[in-house]
């Protein structure tokens, strides 16, 4: 299948990336050539194949439900582009 410009704009919206109108054409071309390459997989019949979800022969470990970290608010806030004492600051979301 081929991806048209509208589809790409929709996917960009889902990914929260604004796409420059001037770049949509070249992006469409690139993505279509990539998908053409990817779609080679359709040559294979995989009806009876189990999907591989983990490469490890082990199941994920669980740990005790205990706090092992904490009291690091300052460290967590340190890299924030905008903060107000104890909080991350974002543009207004509620009128």
């Amino acid at each position: 299948m081929s991806l048209d410009k509208e589809k790409i704009k929709h996917v960009a919206k889902l990914a929260r990336i604004s796409v420059d109108e001037a770049k949509v054409d070249s992006l469409t071309k690139d993505l279509n050539s990539i998908f053409k390459f990817i779609e080679q997989l359709n040559e294979l019949n995989t009806d009876k194949v189990e999907p591989l979800t983990s490469i490890l022969n082990q199941s994920l470990r669980s740990r005790k439900d205990e706090i092992s970290d904490g009291k690091i608010r300052e460290k967590i806030l340190k890299n924030s582009p905008k903060k107000n004492e104890e909080f991350f600051v974002v543009p207004k979301v509620v009128e």
């Binding site: 929260r16 604004s18 890299n79 582009p81 543009p91 979301v93």
Partner: peptide, 17 residues
């Protein structure tokens, strides 16, 4: 752009940010 890293100064609301 909220917890760390670059944040754009453009955009009128959270989604645009």
């Amino acid at each position: 752009g909220v917890r760390y890293g670059y944040r754009s100064q453009k955009g009128k609301d959270l989604i645009e940010m």
